[in-house]
Every structure is written in structure tokens, then in C-alpha cells.
Write a protein that binds this DNA or RNA. Structure first.
Lengths: 213, 213
DNA sequence: CAGAAATTCTAGCACCGCTAGACATTCGAG
DNA sequence: CTCGAATGTCTAGCGGTGCTAGAATTTCTG
């Protein structure tokens, strides 16, 4: 019965296609443009096929969110890692790096890199970010049954931030406020509610104030 | 022609009724339940009447947002003011107020009270808060043509925060990151993405880290 | 009081998420 | 190979959305 496993694989492929197409459509034209009709048309199937994979549009958003969470966790770890292994930047005058710019492998550089990576992700993939934190994807947070990718995203933040939480401060609690602050910056910036030109200043001020290097 | 001014007043009244009804409906059943049909029915007029006052649903949301901004600014100022005039709390043991709890008239107490008032407003009037910062009300921020109530809300924050921005930090910039952090806490908390029991700890940690008392 | 002007309503458009039931396809037993 | 059952997919449609053209009504004005 190899035919059986082939069908299962094709079905899994189609599911991935749905999620990828939804994400693509959302990135191109926003989530409002992701309608079940358009989505069905793009994958060359009729609407009910979508409902054989997902219980509704919410679940499709949720699937995009989980995919995004995995990517974000990887991006955050990569940034923190790159900052750890970075020494003085050769293209820049080392004497200007007095207070420990991001081009140092110290804690400040790591945290700055982490914050930038987070905000960069939110700005680069706004639709995915919305699916994760802005829209209702039917996902559970801060609980037992929180899906692994979401938990892992939080952990990726925590891995870098636990070093700067400071004494007598639970790393988890510190990560929560750090995350919330980044989330606030990300959403307010993208909605045009904060002056764009000061973005970099805000990141540095926030990181320097929150962190106990 | 006193009839003319009477009609204008009646028209203004009806506009206020629309906004108040939209807000009420949103608070009771969420913004999804605020449809033009339901709204029209509640105010005892047909749908097109709504469109003689507002260009669309967006503008109605925007009107609720402006109303909310005015209220929020007042609430923030009231909280900051009350904290300024507060001395040691008589109902509480003064010796436990070692590190300067909110029941002192000092900067920390003022900022804590401000932060609590902000988050309290967001929690108490989630629909209004959404109209202001989460939904698209067609409003312009961080620009010349930003409506007065919104600017004033920011100013209300700034009035208290400029004292703790610290030297060499633009008060406006500091207010931006403080606001963003509060906004992040407010939205993530309400979406169930942060453990509710640590809410108070988060506020104190955030305030203590951000502020330069 | 009649006609003009302003106001309000009815009815409908194109679209939404979602689904019942018709239709087509694939499978397995004889 | 055949034929009934099971599986898969589609067509068509439901009740809802924001919004608007044009008819109907009310109010104002000469």
C-alpha cells in the first residue's frame, strides 16, 4: 500500500502550500486580502478543500504564526550568536566604540543585536508578525499547551537576556518586559505612531536602560 | 432663522449619539459586533445616515479613539497628580515602604502611578484602547496634522516622565520608549500572552529600570 | 400653498467566512 | 474486469459585511 503513503504526503504538501500561499498573499497585499476565495483560487482548489485541512481562517493564520515563530527564533539566535563572536569592527574607528557599540562581543552588543534582530523581523515580515502577535490565530500563550515554536521564540530571547536581567530579578520576568517593550516599539513604529528617524536611538536607549550589564 | 441652528445642534447630537453607541457596543460585544446595520438600528436610523456623518466605519472608530484619547490624558494627569500629593499611606505600615512605594509623592511614586493608570485604562476600556492604538481609525500620528487629543495624550505622559528621562536624554525620546513599553505590556497582557499573576511585578521592574529617578 | 431643497429610507451591489449536498474519483471485494 | 462503497472535490448557496444609487419623504422657501 505505497499508494496510501503517497496520498498522505501529497496531502501534507498541499497543506504546506496553503500556508505558504496564505503567507505570501498576506505579505504582498495584507491579511485583509487573504480571503478563502482568493486563497483557494491561488492553490487551484475550491474553498472546501481549505476546510479539509483547517477548521477555518483562524487556523490558517495560526499555522503561519507557528512557521514565523520558528523563523524568528532562529533569526534571534543567529543575531545573538553573530554578536557574540564579533570583535572590534575593522571598518570603523575603534576609538569611537567607547561605550561598547554593537560591534563588540560583550553583553551590550549581544542584547543590542537581539533587539535589532527582533525589530528587523517585525519590519521585514509584518504579515507574519501580525499573525504571531496581532491577529487571532487561535493560539494559546503563557500556558501549558502553548505550542513549541512559540515557547522556543521566548526561550531564544531568554537565552541572551538572562545574562543582563540583573541580580534578584527572575530572568523570565525580565524577558517578559523586554519582549513587551520590543513588541510595543514594533507595533507603534509600523503603525506610524512613532517618528521613524529616531528608531535607532530608541533601541539603544531602551536596551541601555533595561539591561543590567 | 433659529430653526437652522437647532437643526445643526440636533445633527451634532446625533453624531455624538453615533459615537457613544459605537463605543458602547464595542465595549459590550467587541468591535466585530459593531456593524453598520446594528449601529444604525441602535440609533433608530438607517445605515446611510451614518454615512452622512462619517465617511465609513473607519472614521467612526477614529472618533471613538479621539474621545478615548481625551479621557486617557485626563486619567493620566489625575493619577500623576494624586501621586504627587500623596504622602506615606496611613493604612499601611510605613516601615514596609522602604524603597519608595507608590504611596510617596516622589518621582518613583508618580511614574508608578502613571504606568498603572495607563495599563488600567487599557484594561478597563479595551475597545477604546483598540480604537486608539490597535485598529485603523484613519488617524495620523507623529506628524504635523496629528489631532490634538492624541498629541495631548502623549504630552500627559511627557509631563511626568520628563523628570525621570535622565541627563542627556531627550524627554520626547524617553517618553516614546516608555509609552511603547506600556503599550506592549497592555496588548500582550490582554491577548493572554503574558502570565497575569506577574502584572504588578512587571510594572515595577519596568518603571525602575527605565526611569532615572 | 406649490415647488425646490434637503433629508431619509429601501433595496441592492460585491464581497466575506463557511457548509450542505451533488458529483466525480479511487479503491477493494467478488 | 466489474461494480458498489468509500473517499475526495466541487457547485451553489446561506447569512452576514461595508457601502451606495435612486426612490420616497419631509422640510424649507418664495
Amino acid at each position: 500500500m505505497a499508494a496510501q503513503v503517497r496520498k498522505e504526503r501529497e496531502r501534507a504538501d498541499r497543506e504546506k502550500l496553503i500556508v505558504a500561499t496564505a503567507r505570501e498573499l498576506a505579505e504582498q497585499q495584507g491579511w485583509d486580502a487573504v480571503t478563502t476565495r482568493r486563497l483557494a483560487e491561488r492553490i487551484q482548489y475550491s474553498q472546501p478543500v481549505l476546510y479539509s485541512h483547517f477548521r477555518g481562517k483562524r487556523e490558517i493564520i495560526g499555522a503561519v504564526a507557528l512557521e514565523g515563530a520558528t523563523e524568528m527564533a532562529a533569526a534571534l539566535r543567529a543575531a545573538a550568536n553573530a554578536a557574540t563572536n564579533a570583535t572590534t569592527n575593522t571598518t570603523r574607528d575603534a576609538t569611537t566604540n567607547t561605550a561598547g557599540d554593537s560591534a563588540t562581543g560583550g553583553p551590550r552588543g549581544r542584547v543590542l543585536a537581539l533587539a535589532r534582530a527582533y525589530l528587523d523581523f517585525a519590519e521585514r515580515y509584518p504579515a507574519v508578525y501580525d499573525a504571531m502577535f496581532q491577529l487571532d490565530g487561535g493560539l494559546t500563550f503563557a500556558a501549558e499547551e502553548t505550542p513549541e515554536p512559540l515557547r522556543d521564540g521566548f526561550t531564544a530571547l531568554l537565552e541572551t537576556l538572562e545574562d543582563v536581567a540583573g541580580p534578584d530579578v527572575r530572568p523570565g520576568l525580565f524577558t517578559e518586559i523586554f519582549w513587551a517593550s520590543l513588541h510595543g516599539l514594533a507595533t507603534l513604529s509600523r503603525a506610524g505612531r512613532l517618528p521613524p528617524q529616531d528608531a535607532e536611538d530608541r533601541i539603544e536607549l531602551l536596551v541601555d536602560r533595561l539591561s543590567a550589564f
